[in-house]
């Protein structure tokens, strides 16, 4: 889909279907340079795909105890993997309390994505500890961005 190497679109989605943080990166495996190879028309599709997969996640999240839901949706040759943050346990009464991590990717590999999500969750929790940060705020920190990219480089 995106040339020879695979590319990833990563997004953290807030409780109101709003993106908190977005990033695109390419693979570092098999000599990839980590640069996303999305064509221009793929970029809005990534967002559409991620947004529409929330429908499936809403179904799945109550059926599974795992935070990592693996591949939740598929659109043509693109898969969506999802990780739910711990908000689910704390506020089960309200529907819209989960922060979701979504990764749109064009090759299937569950395990590396799980590791990546674990790292991202770690980073996200640290962000939450910031007294100036509130749930559903966009994350604009440079450091956060760098660390996400580093995690991507490590696993994807």
């Amino acid at each position: 889909m995106a040339g020879s190497s695979t590319s990833y679109y990563f997004v953290i989605i807030g409780t109101k279907d709003n993106p908190l943080y977005e990033a695109e990166f390419g693979t570092f495996k098999q000599g990839g340079d980590g640069v996303p190879k999305f064509r221009e028309e793929q970029r809005h599709m990534n967002q559409f795909i991620a947004h529409s997969s929330l429908d499936c996640i809403e179904d799945l999240q109550w059926a599974s105890k795992e935070m990592y839901l693996k591949t939740v949706d598929k659109f043509n040759n693109t898969w969506v993997s999802c990780f739910l943050t711990g908000g689910k346990a704390a506020y089960t009464r309200r529907y819209e309390t989960d922060i979701k991590f979504l990764l749109v990717h064009d090759t299937r590999s569950d395990e590396p994505i799980r590791q990546f999500f674990a790292d991202v969750y770690d980073l996200y929790c640290k962000t939450l500890m910031n007294p100036f940060y509130e749930v559903n705020m966009a994350i604009r920190s440079q450091t956060f961005d760098q660390k996400i990219k580093a995690a991507a480089k490590k696993y994807l």
């Binding site: 962000t127 604009r140 920190s141 956060f144 660390k147």
Partner: peptide, 11 residues
């Protein structure tokens, strides 16, 4: 509007 650099305190 708090500065983005503030957020880095947490790291």
């Amino acid at each position: 509007d708090f500065d983005d650099t503030d957020m880095d305190l947490a790291f």
